[in-house]
Computed example of a mutant assay.
Amino acid sequence: MSEEKTTHFGYETVAREEKQGKVAEVFHSVAAKYDLMNDLMSFGIHRLWKRFTMEFTGVRKGDSVLDIAGGTGDLTMKFSDLVGPEGRVVLADINESMLRVGRDRLLDKGYSGNIECVQANAESLPFDDNSFDVITMAFGLRNVTDKDQALREFNRVLKPGGRLLVLEFSKTNNPLLSKAYDFYSFSALPLMGKIITNDADSYRYLAESIRMHPDQDTLKAMFEQAGFANCEYHNLTGGIVALHKGIKP
């Protein structure tokens, strides 16, 4: 069977090799105002979702952590404090603009000693096998072209017993919440994007990309197919967001 040559960019069907560039354009456009827009879009709740994620990581002093699609470094800073000077945290993002914003923010806040910043594609990570105790990916997986390949790569670079946590927008089964969420996503988000970043199209793509992302049970099955054990997920805010966790055997 020949490999599928097209994929989704939001609701648009594009050639697989085009998606990465199109996603890059979105994040080049929004990088400078990314944190502000996250606060506005989620009414600040994204901070609670990330705090919940941190509680599940089990990160300890001396651990090695990969924060992939780490963007502006929210989780990286917390991991840096937890692993201490003997630990290692890698802030990785495929997008140069996002990585630059994250690196500058970390330096401005006095973080540097145990942190590396690496431009990296989740589908082809530049790290050795069995390198990390924990990998986190917050709101990045839906932008990856080949999600199955990315999950296999995460499994490869984790140490045995290592943990993968993926925080991502997901599917709510509450009809009223779903209706309100759709109205908000396709009306309010592009308008906010236009006002704050002068870019409505990028935020329309982000809303569409959420709808095209696998639901909770599908993503859990993808974790298992990639070789993870003890896979589970936790719905947050009625399933608008879900945290998936898997362990490398």
Rank of each mutant, 00 (worst) to 15 (best):
Val89Ala: 00
Leu141Glu: 09
Val166Thr: 11
Phe223His: 11
Trp49Pro: 09
Glu18Ala: 11
Cys117Gly: 08
Lys245Cys: 14
Ser187Arg: 14
Arg105Cys: 01
Ala122Phe: 03
Tyr181His: 02
Glu86Gln: 15
Asn174Cys: 10
Gln225Glu: 15
Val157Tyr: 04
Gln149Asn: 12
Gln119Phe: 10
Ala32Arg: 07
Pro190Gly: 00
Val90Asn: 04
Asp128Ile: 09
Leu176Met: 13
Thr6Asn: 12
Tyr34Cys: 06
Asn198Ser: 07
Leu243His: 01
Ser97Cys: 04
Asp133Tyr: 02
Asp215Val: 04
Thr53Gly: 07
Tyr184Phe: 12
Ile94Thr: 07
Arg51Asp: 09
Arg156Gln: 11
Ile94Cys: 02
Ile135Tyr: 10
Glu153Thr: 11
Ser202Phe: 03
Val157Gly: 03
Lys50Ile: 01
Asn143Leu: 01
Ser170Arg: 12
Leu48Ser: 05
Val241Lys: 03
Thr6Ala: 10
Asn198Met: 10
Arg156Leu: 11
Trp49Lys: 07
Gln225Tyr: 09
Asn143Lys: 02
Val101Thr: 01
Phe9Gly: 04
Ser209Cys: 13
Leu151Tyr: 06
Tyr184Ser: 00
Val30Lys: 00
Ala24Leu: 13
Thr72Cys: 03
Lys61Thr: 14
Leu219Pro: 01
Glu232Val: 12
Lys159Val: 04
Thr237His: 03
Lys194Met: 03
Ser178Trp: 11
Ile115Tyr: 10
Ala31Tyr: 01
Phe183Cys: 08
Arg16Glu: 12
Thr57Tyr: 03
Leu158Glu: 00
Val65Ile: 14
Arg142Asn: 09
Asp104Trp: 09
Ser124Cys: 00
Gly239Ser: 14
Met212Cys: 02
Met222Ala: 13
Met222Lys: 01
Tyr34Asn: 04
Arg105Ile: 03
Tyr181Cys: 07
Glu25Cys: 06
Tyr34Ser: 06
Thr13Gly: 07
